[in-house]
């Protein structure tokens, strides 16, 4: 078999099932929704198929820009914290003896096999005014603090929800590193830190990027945590989209917001793929 024929066959065998699936069940539905952008909301919801550019002009509004700003801040901080916690965790899991690796890995996702709402309730019990943390602080002669229903609580909730999405790709990236590389570096007199900086980190950049993307994007688009832990007092992009689609039943404008979000995401995704392929 000639190499180029092998390549083409390979491309077909590996790419076509997944891509077909994505085209039918992702692209077609997405284009359907995004095409509403061109039309108008019916008086009582639904879509009236008269072309208009109104949905785009409505996007440029200081109100929505401020929402984007808040979302960037919250999602950015969440991602940073997730990386700071997630990287050492993934790193240590990867060093564990083989039989403990899977256990540690499963332990990262296990809390998420319980229902979302009661996990959020549990956080409320921990953090609220009469809650556990405040009672503990009170025993130490501190507090009570307002730990809940603010942006800090939103970040905490998002971090909690998406931390596994950081740990798992990082683990997959770190686990394949050859320990000999680090040993070689150490033998050559490099400190642990510079070994990390010069050897380990550059080789795990793809995992870092994937993890950051997995945490940043859903944090940016989340709407339940801002409502339940943020007390509904902050609006994120996800809240906007949900409000337009569900409450206002304004699908055309909801689509326009989505289109704007998708545009940002595509830029992020392409940048991610560009950096990952260079690294």
């Amino acid at each position: 078999m000639s190499p180029s024929r092998g390549r083409r066959l390979g491309a077909f065998v590996f790419l076509s099932p997944g891509l077909t699936y994505l085209v039918v069940l992702l692209l077609v539905p997405l284009v359907l929704v995004l095409s509403y952008t061109l039309f108008q909301r019916g008086r009582f919801g639904g879509v009236v198929y008269e072309v208009t550019g109104e949905n785009f002009s409505r996007l440029i509004d200081p109100l929505y820009l401020s929402v984007v700003g808040t979302s960037l801040k919250i999602a950015g901080l969440t991602t940073l914290l997730a990386l700071l916690l997630g990287y050492p965790t993934a790193y240590l899991i990867a060093q564990l003896p083989r039989k403990w690796k899977t256990v540690a890995l499963v332990a990262v996702v296990l809390p998420f096999w319980t229902n979302f709402i009661i996990r959020v309730y549990a956080w409320i019990i921990l953090l609220n005014g009469p809650g556990l943390l405040n009672s503990g602080l009170k025993a130490l002669g501190l507090g009570p603090y307002e730990l809940l229903y603010n942006q800090g609580a939103i970040i905490l909730g998002l971090l909690y929800s998406y931390l596994p999405l950081m740990v798992l790709p990082l683990y997959a990236a770190i686990e394949r590193l050859d320990p000999q590389l680090r040993e070689a570096s150490a033998n050559l007199g490099a400190s642990a830190f510079s070994t990390f900086r010069k050897v380990t980190l550059p080789l795990t950049v793809p995992g870092v990027l994937t993890g950051c993307l997995f945490v940043f994007v859903p944090s940016f688009g989340n709407f339940v945590i801002p409502e339940m832990l943020g007390g509904g007092k902050s609006v994120m992009v996800g809240n906007l989209i949900r409000t337009e689609f569900l409450q206002a039943r304004d699908w055309p404008f909801g689509s326009a917001l989505t289109l704007a979000l998708v545009a940002v995401l595509v830029v992020l995704l392409i940048a991610q793929s560009w950096v990952a392929r260079r690294a």
Binding site: G18, L26, L30, I241
Partner: peptide, 18 residues
């Protein structure tokens, strides 16, 4: 590459309605 990652980053509501 971007297409393959897209569903992971798309708001669930949009995929749901689509």
């Amino acid at each position: 590459d971007a297409l393959a990652l897209m569903p992971a980053v798309l708001p669930d509501l949009v995929l749901a309605i689509g």
